[in-house]
Every structure is written in C-alpha cells, then in structure tokens.
Design a binder for these strands. Structure first.
Lengths: 201, 201
DNA sequence: ACAAAAACATACTTATATGAATGTTTTTAA
DNA sequence: TTAAAAACATTCATATAAGTATGTTTTTGT
C-alpha cells in the first residue's frame, strides 16, 4: 500500500508544478522537461505516471483549475438561503477580486487563460472547461431564481442572461487586467459590478 | 520605386497570413515555416523582410489586431454628437456581436486571445495592447461624458468604471463563447448588456 | 530471502523550431 | 549595358520538444 501512496504523491507533485508553470507561461510553452526539473524527478518518471502531456493537462484542469473556481466562486453561492442574494453576489465577487495576490492579478484567471489559449482547438479541454462554466452559470441562475422567490430580485430579470453577463465581466476583467500595471481597473470593474447587481433588485 | 512597392506587398502578405494563423492557432503555435508556406515564399524571404518572429508579432498587432477593434468598436463611437449615446452604445455592441462570422465566434477576439496568451509575459506586446485598450476606454469615457452633457446619461455614472465594465464584458463573453457550441450566450450577453446600458440613463 | 512489479533514471529517436549563412534571381540606377 | 543592391531561395547550425526503449533501484507479496 505504501507504493500506491507514493505514486499518488508523485502524481500530485507533478500536477501542482505543472499548474504553476501552465499558469505562469501557458500550456504550450511549458515543456515536460521543464516541469520535471521543478519536481526534481526525471522524464522517465513522468511517462511512468502519465500517458502524455495532454493527459496531464486534463488532470491539471480537473484537479486544480476547476477547484479554484469552485472553491471561490461556485460553492460560496450555496449561502443563498441565509443571505440576501444581492449581498451574496456582491460579496463573493468583491471578496474574490480583493483576495488576489500580486501574481494572480498579473497572470489572470487560469481557467480563462486556458480557454483563450487552447479552448477552441482541443475538444477534450474545451468540454471540461465548458462543464465548469456551465456549473458556474447554473449555480448563479439558481441563486437569482431563489432571489426572485425571496422578492430580492426583480421578476423580469433573465437569470440565465445575467449569469453569463456576470461570468463574462469577471473573466473579461481578469484578462484585461493583464495588460495594465496597477489594480485601478479591478476596482472600477467592482464599482460598476456592484451597481449593476443592485439594479437587479 | 517598383521594388519598394513589391517589398511592401510582400510584407503585407506575410502580415495577413500571419494574422490568420495567429488567430486560428495562437502566436506560439504558429511557426515561420508554416506562415511562409501559406504565402508561397521561403523562409529566406521572411528574414529578409522581418528581423524576427517577435517583430512580425508587433506588426500584426499594430496593423491588423488594432485596426479591427478601431474600425468596429472605437471609430463608430465618434457618432456621439448625432446619436443618442444610449442608442449608440447599444447599437455598436449589438452590431459587432451580430456581425461575427462562424469562425469569429469560434475563435474569439484576436486582441483578447493575444492578451491572454502572451499579454503579461512580453512587455512589448503588452504595451501595444494596453494602448489599444486605453484608447477604447478613453473613447467610451468621452461618449459617456458627452451623454451626461446631453442629459442622456445620469450624472452619478462613473464613466471610467463603466467603460472598463463594458470592455471586460465584451472581451469576456468572446472568450467564454469559445468553449460553447452555439451562440446562445452571445445573445444572453447582449440582452443583459442592453438593459445595463439603458440603466445608465 | 527472493522473484515480480512498480518507481524512477538514462539514453535515444524523431520532429520541428528560430535564425544565420550563403547562394541565385530580379530590379534599379548610372 | 552593367555593377550593385534588393528580393528571394537553399542549406546549415543549434536548440529543444514529445515520446520511447531500456536501463537501475526500490518496494511488495510470497
């Protein structure tokens, strides 16, 4: 059983170092030798644990990229029963934007980076990322619909359309921020976002 | 003088084929041999006209990527004197979204793709793209401020913040659309965008 | 203790990239 | 017309990628 654990640990190590490099330099520009030099292991070790770079990419998206969005943007939305949904939405987006490290501001959103780098040219990656966006969208719709029942959101709001608008704005600003040198645009985005969300009620 | 024209034509040919391939497959994944095979010319011809791939990238951004955004999203905003600015904004964003070819919907925005692929890791590219986004933002601010003077936009609107929100949403949805198979999200985006813009007045 | 299997390393194959060096053809200007 | 310069082609140098083959070490079940 010790071997299975060791294998698991090695795989996780490779996945984590891969995520860091994919995030920093992109999927295409990151090579297996580069990843394995970070892990301190050899290329042989890599191909013992993974079939290909593509298989690794899938794991990185499923294990790390997906979890990041879930933990910060999707799961917290489950609080819709206890909290006013307008507050909830404003709070989650604001907290997320304010939580970013300097590097995270510079490098943008890992999911959005992958979507824009390889999204449409690899159907496997595309479908995993599509599922992630759909999960996020579904959860936002659920919150907005619950808000309508609680009379916190206007009935004429198109939840699906608003959900896409919120996701687009968030991912968009994380991309646009990459060309700038400071956080001004993040706060400008947040200001308008909050006003926009309040107008849903 | 015939030579100068020929040189200019060849350079433009290389730039145009490069744009197509950069747009379709990304900057990193596109090679000089691949570009030159499209032009029907040799690699020697390329290095006669361009210093490096990087220099080519600069030209493609300056000549084509920039022009696309200018022609469709920035220059048309100049109509703010004649047209109600709420209508103007809705119209330009709507027309642009509706004008996209199937390929343009699949491949997203060339500028946004570049920003997300190499934006933060190459200062030369980053600064050209930053200037482009800043030009767009400035023009939107101008239109919104003019709208205030014309009493078409509320005085408490933060023009700079709204401008960034509009750009982010637009670029964001063009990225997000890449993981989907249909145009539903583009129209959902447009629906919410229009409502949002109308609430500025 | 020991054979088998898993974990990992080393060396190799093949492909392809950027870019430089050098060669040939076309254009230009005197 | 003819030398030179510009346009373009061919060949070469160097680097590095993904993936494979084949090794060696460690772990495991008997």
């Amino acid at each position: 059983m010790k071997q299975k654990i060791k294998s698991e640990i090695t795989q996780q190590l490779i996945i984590e170092e891969s995520f860091k490099l994919f995030y920093k330099n992109g999927y295409s520009k990151t090579s297996i030798p580069e990843i394995m030099s970070k892990t301190g292991l050899s290329k042989g070790a890599f191909y013992h644990h993974f079939e290909s770079k593509h298989e690794l990419g899938k794991q990185v998206i499923k294990d790390i990229v997906r979890k990041r969005i879930y933990d910060s943007m999707i799961t917290p939305l489950n609080n819709y029963k206890k909290e006013n949904v307008i507050n909830l939405l404003c709070r989650i987006f604001t907290e997320r934007i304010k939580s970013f490290s300097i590097e995270e501001k510079r490098l943008g959103c890992p999911a959005n980076n992958l979507i824009n780098e390889i999204g449409c040219s690899d159907d496997v990656f595309r479908n995993i990322l599509k599922q992630l966006i759909n999960d996020w969208k579904s959860m936002l719709i659920k919150v907005l619909e619950e808000g309508k029942l609680k009379k916190e959101i206007k009935k004429d709001v198109n939840s699906s359309a608003v959900a896409i608008y919120l996701i687009s704005g968030f991912e968009g600003v994380r991309g646009i921020r990459k060309v700038f040198d400071d956080d001004k645009i993040l706060f400008e985005y947040l200001e308008t976002l909050k006003k926009h969300i309040h107008q849903l009620g």
